[in-house]
Simulated scan of single mutants.
Amino acid sequence: MHIKPSAAIRKNYNEISKLCKESGEPVYLTKNGEGDLVVMDITAFSRRESMLRLRETLVAVEEDRLAGKKGFSIDDVDEMMKKTIGEVADGRRE
Rank of each mutant, 00 (worst) to 15 (best):
E79H: 11
L19E: 15
S73I: 02
N14Y: 04
V88R: 09
M80P: 04
F45Y: 14
K83A: 11
A8L: 02
R55E: 13
K11H: 10
I3A: 08
M81T: 06
S73F: 01
M81F: 08
T57R: 13
T84C: 10
L19T: 12
E79F: 12
K18D: 11
D64P: 07
A89D: 08
D78I: 05
G86S: 04
Y28Q: 08
A44H: 02
G68N: 07
D90P: 03
L58I: 05
K4V: 09
L37R: 11
E79D: 13
V61Y: 14
R65M: 02
G71V: 05
A89W: 13
V38G: 09
I85R: 14
R47T: 13
S46C: 07
I16K: 06
T84Q: 14
R47V: 11
G24L: 06
M80A: 06
V61P: 05
P26Y: 04
G24Y: 03
S46T: 06
M80I: 05
K4D: 05
M40S: 08
S46Y: 03
A67F: 01
R10P: 00
E25F: 07
N32C: 03
K18P: 03
R55N: 13
S46V: 00
R53L: 10
K69T: 03
E22P: 03
N32T: 06
Y28V: 14
M81P: 03
E34G: 02
V27L: 09
R55V: 10
N14P: 01
C20I: 06
A67G: 00
R92A: 12
E94I: 02
S46M: 04
V39N: 07
K82C: 07
V59R: 14
T57H: 15
V59A: 08
R53S: 10
S6N: 11
E56F: 13
M1E: 08
G91S: 05
L58K: 05
M40Q: 15
E34F: 10
R53Y: 15
D41M: 02
N12L: 03
I16S: 11
G71A: 06
G91Q: 00
L29C: 00
E34P: 07
L29Q: 00
V77K: 01
I9V: 12
V39E: 01
N12G: 09
A8E: 10
L52D: 13
H2R: 13
D78C: 07
G68D: 01
A7D: 14
S73C: 02
K11F: 01
G91W: 01
S23Q: 04
L52M: 13
R93S: 11
R10E: 11
A60Q: 12
L19P: 02
T43D: 15
V59D: 08
I42T: 12
E49D: 05
F45W: 14
I42K: 15
D36Y: 11
I9E: 08
M80Q: 09
G71I: 01
G33L: 02
K21Y: 09
I42C: 07
S46L: 08
G68T: 05
I3F: 04
G24P: 07
G86H: 01
T57S: 14
R47N: 14
E62P: 04
E63W: 07
E22M: 02
D90F: 11
C20R: 09
A44M: 07
L37I: 06
M81I: 14
K70D: 04
D41Y: 08
L54H: 15
S73W: 01
E63H: 10
I74N: 09
K21V: 13
R10M: 11
M81Q: 12
R47P: 04
